[in-house]
Design a protein around this nucleic acid. Structure first.
Lengths: 352, 352
DNA sequence: AATATTTTCGGGTACGTACCCTATTTACTA
DNA sequence: TAGTAAATAGGGTACGTACCCGAAAATATT
């Protein structure tokens, strides 16, 4: 608890440049009204001092308010995955609320493309500065992105990216690599010439859908490693329990399987079937840190879960917008999330 | 970019209570000089408003300065592990420096107990408010902790904890569980009745040393899972390459081995030997995200690395002290780090 | 050369909190 | 009851930055 040492920031600059604080302030925010000569002098001093503005004082003094929107799927009864990013966004919001950040939520239905457009339209009606988007529907998302561009609304994408579109930042997994990691793990779980089933469970599957990219990465791994496993890929569009199981049983009847890799969080569906019918001997690998999945991990029915920090994705998405607008910081174009491996022995310590 | 709405905090309280800001300030910091009656009135209003002080304004106005010390091992030529926590501490420091935080570093030599005491003594001579400690030497650390207690210096432990000692916070792995996770992984790597060698490489090994706890967790896993693997534990106290390899060769000559589990970051030593002598067929699992280890992970000589976010440990250690002193926030007594699994396919995305 | 206009700049106040210094009130002593 | 000490309260400035408003200097117009 001692005293400060040097003089403060802008004041010190002003003193050295023999100008007023207001003038320094003008060049800092390159506002007009400063002659080229003095601007250069001040710029030089700023550089020389390596001046960093005091963010506390800045946001204290600033009465600016920014409005952000959030366009992500709502949590469904079938999977609670989207609770996590939402939670992360809420946490970030609570931290930066005091700096004058307003956030509005627009949640769409993963099983209904139309709801995406509806919510997107609502956002465009209002006057937002930025928006966090989970682009589950490729074409719709691209269209929305373009409209945001003309409306000068900054976009941050989370959870899956979209080619040919350059948002302010993408925060999420490298999906192909995520599939490769799954392959890497599964290598250890199956015998020499084992049989693997890759299982896509999703109502909608756009051409570039993220499940397909994981699936592709998975197959690529075994191809590159030249491992002689047999891989079948199966996709079901009816996501309710009976439908999924019906398809699964049909496959199992005719094919030997050592391992099933479910490309999203719905691996618990399979696990439930295994438990209820006392099936063992088939390894199970899937995605996401959900209560529904963890119980089967604990019981040893699911061997591995792969997880990509959904809470942090949401958290960082909002903070990225905040950094961009308040600190005028150049934000990372791509913020690749780690690809985490969760097992029975470490899940209790995992931070989603 | 709109306007604020309500009146500010203390001012509003003062207005409602018909007193001055200074008086409100007194009851907020329960300083003397306020009659019981007005104090009660103000307290009631504070409660009613659910007043939360503006931390920005607070630290702007406060000229308080806190001094923290850091007592951790220095990076050695043998392992660069301790670079990471140091880096995390430095990052945290750069973020909170503006709030008046001073940090001094006292680095000791992992191969020389005496240096711990020397640096510890230096810390006690000066007037610090808090200290970040890596208690590598159990008894010395306990002694230091006690002296800190009488000197009213708050301690935060990182990397490994010490029983019977209750620091402000412990930030690091659950070592026993970390060993269990290793067992969980290795289960998939060895055959039915495989042979495993657990390898401790450390100059000093206190009774409660963290390598031993990992080792214990590892064995416990196989015991609980009732898996009939054969586990030998070997410890070497000479940590240079020739010595380690000499011991290893002696063991390998007489014993079949399917997998070696190295309980710390020195797994690269073994990997180097395997590479130079073209040994394959022995799986290798060890600890820590070091450049030295990653190259062997990439080459497929090391199968898995377990990692516990050393950078974040340092980062959070300093922030914990900061939170405690500046925000008077009750900090978490134990901040268990996640137990992360690193492979060839996900290490590029890992954040240490 | 005098006036109008534009460019360039400084003074001053505000943001919400901390804390010093002084003024007023109350209680106590002789 | 005056006189003094202690308790209680308020005024005011500072923290580092933002930004309004008006003043001075430079340039343009007549």
């Amino acid at each position: 608890m001692l005293k400060k040492t040097e003089l403060s920031g802008v004041k010190e600059i002003a003193r050295r440049a023999n100008v007023s604080i207001a003038t320094v302030d003008r060049v800092l925010h390159n506002r007009p009204g400063v002659s080229v000569k003095t601007k250069e002098k001040i710029d030089a001093i700023i550089k020389e001092m390596d001046y960093k503005p005091n963010l506390l004082a800045r946001s204290l003094a600033s009465k600016k308010t920014f409005r952000f929107a959030v366009l992500i799927p709502k949590e469904s009864s079938e999977t609670e995955y989207w609770k996590a990013p939402l939670q992360g966004i809420r946490t970030a919001w609570s931290e930066i609320q005091v700096y004058g950040v307003e956030v509005s939520f627009f949640l769409y239905d993963l099983n209904d493309r139309a709801t995406f457009d509806q919510q997107a339209a609502k956002i465009l009606e209002e006057d937002f500065h930025g928006v966090v988007v989970a682009p589950s529907f490729i074409n719709e998302a691209i269209e929305f992105y373009k409209q945001c561009e003309t409306a000068k609304i900054k976009c941050v994408f989370i959870n899956s990216d979209v080619s040919n579109v350059k948002p302010l930042s993408y925060i999420g997994p490298d999906l192909f690599q995520s599939g490769k990691l799954a392959g890497n793990l599964c290598k250890y779980l199956v015998p020499e010439k084992g049989n693997i089933l890759v299982f896509n469970i999703s109502r909608v599957l756009d051409a570039e859908h993220h499940l397909l990219r994981k699936s592709a990465g998975f197959e690529a791994y075994f191809e590159e490693a030249k491992l002689p496993v047999h891989i079948d890929v199966m996709t079901v569009h009816q996501t309710d329990y009976p439908s999924v199981i019906r398809e699964l049983c049909a496959y199992l009847k005719d094919n030997p399987v050592d391992l099933i890799f479910v490309t999203n969080s719905r691996v618990f569906t399979i696990a439930r079937y295994f438990e209820e019918n006392n099936i063992s001997g088939i390894k199970l690998v899937g995605y996401d840190y959900l209560e529904q999945n963890l119980q089967y991990l604990e019981k040893g029915i699911i061997d591995f879960l792969i997880c990509q920090k959904p809470i942090e994705q949401g958290y960082r998405a909002l903070l990225t917008l905040y950094d961009h607008f308040f600190h005028q910081i150049g934000v990372e174009k791509v913020q690749a999330m780690p690809i985490d491996i969760i097992t029975k022995e470490n899940y209790k310590y995992y931070k989603n």
